[in-house]
């Protein structure tokens, strides 16, 4: 098996739709008060004025506006699995209009803080978080909309 034929597998199960062409974060929504949750809430609604305990799984908006951003110039400690040599990467906080929430994510490789500006439209894509001998572990990324 060659390197580019490695199996792609989610770095965490159930947090996002593993569809390269149409990825989405997977949250839940309280069926009573309609509050969104990411990561998923599935036991008791955290809205203090809601007694809901039933949730439906929902894909979150794939696009949002950049609230803020920064980067890791040094490799984070374990349990982050950092490549050697380490390449700095950016992290974005993106506001989703429909859900009225801000969600963090790594920014796609090749896009640095110098390319970012608050208010930019960002979209969700899938990227590789780390890999081992036979698998690539996939996570969601934010990417500026071209």
């Amino acid at each position: 098996m060659s390197d580019d034929a490695k199996t792609r597998t989610p770095a965490i199960e159930g947090w996002f739709r593993m569809d390269e062409a149409d990825p989405a974060l997977l949250g839940t929504r309280c069926t009573r008060c309609k509050t969104y949750y990411f990561p998923k809430e599935s036991s008791f609604c955290r809205n203090p004025r809601c007694s809901g305990s039933e949730f439906e799984e929902v894909p979150l908006s794939r696009r949002g506006k950049l609230w803020s951003f920064t980067n890791n110039c040094y490799a984070p400690p374990l349990p982050y699995v950092a490549p050697d040599p380490f390449e700095p990467y950016a992290i974005a906080a993106v506001e989703l209009a429909e859900e009225q929430m801000v969600v963090l994510g790594q920014v796609v490789k090749g896009v640095g803080v110098e390319d970012l500006k608050a208010g930019m439209e960002m979209e969700l894509v899938l990227g590789t978080l780390y890999e081992d001998d036979d698998k690539e572990y996939v996570v969601w990324n934010w990417r500026p909309v071209a």
Binding site: K34, T35, F38, P39, M101, V102
Partner: peptide, 9 residues
């Protein structure tokens, strides 16, 4: 990973 959603309150 995220803020609370402000849709309901």
């Amino acid at each position: 990973f995220s803020t609370d959603s402000a849709v309901s309150e």
